[in-house]
Design a protein around this nucleic acid. Structure first.
Lengths: 196, 196, 196, 196
DNA sequence: GAGTAACCGAGACGGTACGTCACGTCTTCTG
DNA sequence: CAGAAGACGTGACGTACCGTCTCGGTTACTC
C-alpha cells in the first residue's frame, strides 16, 4: 500500500533539516497515553498528533502507520537488554518469568498488544520483527555457554511463559502478575503441575 | 454507545414478519470467510453484507456490531460442549490440550481472535461473556465429582494451556498445533520442563 | 480518476432512502456565498459542507468535485431559457448583449468563472457541457425560421459579445455592464467602431 | 497572507553569493512546460523545482508564489514592446487584432491565463499589474500624436479584441486564431456585423 | 379479509479517520 | 549569502467505514 520505507529514521548521512528529536519522544508518549485510554482500535493518529503538539504528516514521516507507531511506543528500542542463560534450569525459568511479568504488567502493553497483533497479521515483515524482538527480551543465545540441549528448547519455554502471562492479563482486565503468580508459574514449569 | 440491546434475537413474542433464518447462517459464513481473508480490523460489515447477499441493516438487526458478529461467527453457540474432569491429572491435562489444539487450529480463530480481544477490551460485558464461554470449552466444574483441590487450580491450567496455544499460532503464522506440540505441552505440565 | 458518474441525480427509479432535497439547495447556496468570499481556488468543499450544515461525503454523493459543484451553483439548470433569433440584426444583437450583461453581472459568475474554466481545461466532458450550456443562454437555433446566413455567424457574435463582457468584468474588479456599455457594445457590432 | 515582498528580485546591492542566473530561466522554462501539461491549478511548485533541477526555496527567493511565477513565465518582461497608434482606424484595429492573435495563440497563455486570473482576483496589486501590462501589448498612448477621440475609445476596443480572442481559444480547446478569424474580427469592428 | 408489525433490499445521512499532497516557512550543511 | 535537502505546521483532498434512518415493498400473525 505504502511506497515509503517501513523504518525511516535510519538515515546515515545528515542532509537537509534534521528531525526534531523532541517530536519523536512526544509522539511516542502521546501514543502510550492515548492507547491506554482508548485502546488500539480506538487510537487515531490525529489524536496522537494533537496530543504531541504536531500533525499527522510529521507522524507519517517517521512511521508507516498505526502498527509501526504503537510497536515502537510500547516496545522502546533502547530497552532491549537481551538476557543470557546460566544453564541452571530453575534460575533461567525464574528469569524468564520475571521478564514476562515486567513486560505484560505495563498497561500500554496489556491494552495495545492484542490490537497490534491483529494489525500485524497483515504485515508479515513487522510481525516477524515484533515477535523476534519480543523473544529477545526473554533470552538471547548469543555468546552463551549453556548446554546445547537447553537452548534448543528455549523457544517452547518462552512460548509457554509469554503466552500464559499474556492470557492472564488479557482474560481478566485488572488481573496482575504478582509474586504468587510468578511462583506458581515457575513451579509449574520446573516441577510440573500439582494441585494445591 | 448503542442504545439497543446487545443481543436482539431473543424476541419472545412473534409479531410481524419473521427473520429470514437462512440470512443468519449466510452472514456468519461470510464473516468467517472474510475475516480469514482480511483480518479482524480489515473486516467491514459492508463487505460481509455483500458477501451474504444482504445489507448492513439486516446485520445490525441481529448483532450490535462487529465484535458481537465475529464472536458468534468464530465461536458458534451450539458447539459449546462442556467437558468434565476425571480427576486423573494426566488425562485431564491431555483433554485440555486437545481442546486448545482444536480451538486454536481453526484459521478463523487464529486470525480473528487478537482483533476481537482488542475490540472487546472496550466492551466489558462481551469480554466477560467471551472468556467465560472460552473457559467452558476446556472445563466445566458443574456437576463434577472431582477433588476440590484440583478444581481450584483449573483456571491456572486453562490459562497456561490456552495462552501457550494462542501464542504458538499467533507468533508464527503457519505454525500448527500438531501431535508433537501436544505431547510436549502435556509433558511439560505434568512432569515439568526437561531439556530434550 | 473517479469511478462514479459525473451526474448522479438522474436516477429514474426510486430505491433506497431518497436524497434530502433541501441539502441540494443548501449546498449550492453555500457554494455561491463562499465562492464570492474566497474565490474559486480558495473555495474548499469542507467549508461548503460546514456552511450547508452537512459533510463533504454528502457533496461528493451529488457532484464529482469542485468543478461540477461550482458549475451547477453558478449556472442553475432550470435557468436555461434558450432564446430565439428574430432575424432583425439590431434586435438580435441587442438581445445577446442583454443576455451577456445579465450573466456576467452576477458576482458569483464574475468571481468563479475564471477558476472554473481553469479547472475545466482538464475535464473535456465538463468543458464541452459548460460552454454548450453557456451558448444556449444566448441563442438556440432550434425551431427558428431565421435566415440561414445569419445563423452561421451567430457563434462568432456570441464569442465577441460574451468574450468582451467577460473581459470587462474580469479586467477591472468593480466594473459594471451598465446601459452605456450595452449601448456602445451593440453599436460597435452593428455599425462598426467609430471614435466618439 | 505572505509577509514577504511581492517582488523579490529587485535587490539593488550585491552582497554575498550572487544568484545563479541560469536558475531564473530554468525555472521559468519548467513552469511553461508544466503549466501546459497540467494546467494552472494542477501546477505544483515542487514539480517546477524538480523540473528546473532546484528546490522550492530557490523559487520563493525570486517570486512570492505561484501567481507571480506563472505571470512572469507566460508574459516575459522583456517582450513588452509597446505599440503606437497611427490614427488610421483600419490599420490600428488590424494591429491590435494581430497582437491578440499572437498573444493568445501561445499555448502557455491559453492554458494558464484563466487560472492565473482566478488566483489574481485575490491579489489586487498583481491583478492591476497584469492587466496593465497586458493592455500595453496592444497599445501605449505614450508619446503618440493621434487624435484624442480615438485614444479615448482604445480601452473599449482592446477589451473587445482581447476578450473575443480569449473566449475563442478557451471555449474550444484546439481552436486557432488564424487569418480568417483575424479578417472577420477586423471586419466586424471596422464595418459592423454583416451576415455572410 | 383487513390490520398491524417487523422484516427485506436499497441507499442516503452525519460523523470520523484514513493516508496523501501541496503550500510556504524553517533549519541544517556545503559551496 | 546562495543553494540542496528536507523537516515543519497547516489544511484540503477524496475514500472508506461506522451505525442510523428512510424509503417502498413483503411476509406473517391477529382480529
Amino acid at each position: 500500500v505504502s511506497k515509503k520505507p517501513v523504518v525511516r529514521n535510519e538515515s546515515a548521512v545528515a542532509a537537509g533539516r534534521p528531525r526534531d528529536l523532541r517530536l519523536h519522544d512526544a509522539i511516542l508518549a502521546a501514543t502510550r497515553g492515548l492507547v491506554i485510554e482508548n485502546g488500539y482500535i480506538g487510537l487515531s493518529l490525529a489524536a496522537v498528533a494533537e496530543g504531541a503538539g504536531t500533525t499527522t504528516a510529521a507522524i507519517y514521516r517517521r512511521w508507516s502507520g498505526k502498527a509501526e507507531l504503537v510497536h515502537e511506543a510500547i516496545f522502546p528500542t533502547e530497552a532491549s537488554a537481551p538476557r543470557h542463560a546460566t544453564g541452571d534450569r530453575y534460575v533461567d525459568i525464574q528469569e524468564m518469568v520475571n521478564a514476562a511479568s515486567e513486560m505484560f504488567s505495563r498497561p500500554e502493553v496489556r491494552i495495545a498488544l492484542p490490537g497490534l497483533i491483529a494489525d500485524t497479521l497483515a504485515n508479515p515483515e513487522l510481525h516477524t520483527r515484533m515477535f523476534g524482538r519480543l523473544a529477545e527480551r526473554f533470552y538471547s543465545g548469543q555468546g552463551s555457554a549453556v548446554d546445547h540441549a537447553a537452548h534448543r528448547d528455549f523457544p517452547r519455554l518462552i512460548e509457554a511463559i509469554a503466552g500464559t502471562a499474556m492470557f492472564h492479563v488479557i482474560a481478566r482486565p485488572g488481573a496482575v502478575l504478582d509474586e504468587q503468580w510468578k511462583a506458581e508459574m515457575t513451579n509449574m514449569l520446573v516441577n510440573g503441575w500439582r494441585p494445591q
